[in-house]
Simulated assay, not measured.
Amino acid sequence: DMQYVLDRARVVGSEQQFLVGVRVLSGAIKANQAGGAYALLAERLIDAVLRAVERELARAHGKVPGGGAAVIAMGKLGGREMTAASDLDLIVIYDFDDTALHSAGSRPLAPTQYYARLTQRLISALTAATAEGTLYEVDMRLRPSGQQGPLATQLKTFIDYQKSAAWTWEHMALTRARVIAGPPQLRASVEAAVRAALVLPRERTKIAADVRDMRERIFKEKGTDDIWELKQVRGGLVDVEFIAQYLQLVHAAAHPEVLDQNTLEAYRKLRDAGLLAQDHAEVLIPATRLLHDLTQILRLCLEGGFDPATAPSGLKELLAQAGDAASFAQLEARLKEAQGRVSELFRLLIV
Rank of each mutant, 00 (worst) to 15 (best):
D87P: 12
K316A: 11
Y4R: 14
K222Y: 08
L348P: 01
R212N: 06
R234C: 10
L345S: 00
Q248D: 04
G133A: 03
L57M: 14
Q3C: 06
A28T: 10
Y115I: 12
T134K: 11
V190W: 04
D210Y: 00
A70C: 15
H255F: 11
L291G: 08
L264T: 15
G305E: 13
R212C: 01
L300R: 03
G304P: 05
I227L: 03
A70Y: 12
F242N: 07
D87T: 14
Q16A: 13
L50D: 09
A197E: 11
F306S: 00
F219C: 03
D139M: 08
T295I: 02
R51A: 15
I123N: 02
A253N: 14
L300G: 09
Y136Q: 02
P183Q: 08
L25M: 03
E203Q: 14
A208F: 10
L331E: 03
R121H: 12
L249Y: 10
R117W: 13
A152E: 00
E229A: 10
L291I: 08
L276E: 08
L276I: 09
I207H: 05
G223I: 04
S164P: 02
I72G: 08
D307N: 13
D160W: 06
L174P: 08
G182P: 07
L174R: 07
K231Y: 11
R341V: 01
L155Y: 08
D324M: 13
H171K: 13
S124F: 13
V64F: 12
L275T: 15
A52V: 05
T288N: 06
L247Q: 12
